[in-house]
């Protein structure tokens, strides 16, 4: 059965107000900006955002008032620095205040990994001596039952929804992801509901020709959204490069709440969907971001 759906329908059907959502889980590449912009247009509220570094995506959702809680390692703009909307929300309560539970990249990954394994927690020695476990009540400082040495227990974290961006998928959600994976697999396996966003929809045979490149089982996937340029301005290996200028422009323009509102109107609210956004980017900009030199992997033989 085909799970193909528009982004508008996927968000309307599978993301209720109050949902906890893991997104941006591949770190800097493959950030689901098309999904984030649709959350804003549908005025989703009281969301919990779960992720590692969340380059610019979480800042946009916070500025639009969609978010009540952050469970992440980092919120900002990787090539530019601080996230202005995040700062306004925490420092001034604009447009609303937020609850923040601090993680690190390792511990947010371990929390999702624990959920994916059905384990109550995973112990680590990372963050011992850091103030993060004191700030975030999700963590438990304990001692090892083996030798009594200090350990940090990272309890399982099970998102309601995980947004997994991939290069290509079939209509059932069997999908190939390549390049660095970040915590994509942990998030996919931990979540109750998975929405896949694919640059390209391909035949099942294409995916089945290389099962080692599949990110997770398609039975977890509820919706497959075909969204070319869906991760712009972040990069998708083999499809397009990171649009650094867009990150710089956002950073400059969102220094004030008014500037952010104007940016939002221009790039999100007045744009009905990603196809219109891509058209707005224009052919010249798209051409400058496309892959300049293809680098195909050697074939592998699954024969017998």
């Amino acid at each position: 059965m085909s799970k193909l759906m528009t982004m508008r329908d996927a968000v309307a059907h599978y993301v209720p107000d109050g949902a906890s959502i893991a997104a941006g889980v591949a770190l800097e590449p493959l950030i689901p900006f098309a999904f984030g912009h649709e959350l804003i247009r549908q005025q989703k509220r009281e969301l919990t955002l779960i992720g590692p570094i969340s380059d610019m995506l979480f800042d946009q959702l916070i500025g639009a008032g969609c978010v009540s809680r952050i469970q992440a390692a980092w919120v900002g703009n990787v090539s530019e620095g601080l996230g202005h909307c995040y700062r306004r929300a925490i420092e001034k309560g604009v447009p609303r205040s937020l609850m923040v539970q601090e993680f690190s990249n390792h511990t947010i990954g371990l929390a999702l990994l624990a959920a994916s394994l059905g384990a109550p927690f995973i112990p680590t020695r990372s963050l011992l001596g850091s103030d993060i476990p004191r700030q975030n009540p999700h963590f438990l400082l304990s001692s090892s039952p083996l030798d009594g040495s200090p350990v940090l227990l990272v309890p399982a974290l099970r998102p309601d929804v995980a947004l997994i961006s991939v290069q290509r998928s079939d209509e059932q959600g069997n999908a190939h992801l390549w390049g660095n994976l970040g915590i994509s697999q942990e998030a996919m396996l931990a979540a109750q509901t998975v929405i896949l966003v694919a640059e390209e929809i391909v035949a099942r045979e294409v995916i089945a020709s290389d099962p080692n490149r599949v990110i997770g089982p398609s039975y977890k996937v509820r919706a497959v959204v075909h969204e070319p340029w869906g991760a712009h301005p972040s990069a998708v290996q083999g499809y397009y490069n990171r649009d650094h200028a867009m990150f710089a422009d956002y950073h400059q323009r969102t220094r004030t709440q008014e500037g952010y509102r104007a940016w939002l109107e221009e790039w999100v609210l007045s744009v009905p969907d990603r196809a219109a956004y891509v058209q707005k980017l224009g052919q010249e900009r798209l051409a400058s971001l496309r892959v300049r030199e293809h680098r195909y992997a050697a074939q592998v033989d699954y024969g017998y």
């Binding site: 590692p52 570094i53 992440a72 390692a73 980092w74 919120v75 900002g76 620095g81 601080l82 996230g83 995040y86 700062r87 929300a89 925490i90 420092e91 309560g93 601090e102 993680f103 690190s104 990249n105 390792h106 511990t107 020695r125 990372s126 963050l127 011992l128 001596g129 850091s130 103030d131 993060i132 700030q135």
Partner: peptide
């Protein structure tokens, strides 16, 4: 003051705290 409303909100650890720990 991190318990109340802080003066400046910085982005957070990323992987920094893990690297410093390990």
């Amino acid at each position: 003051n991190w318990r109340d409303r802080p003066r400046v909100r910085l982005p957070g650890s990323g992987g920094g705290a893990d690297i410093a720990s390990l």
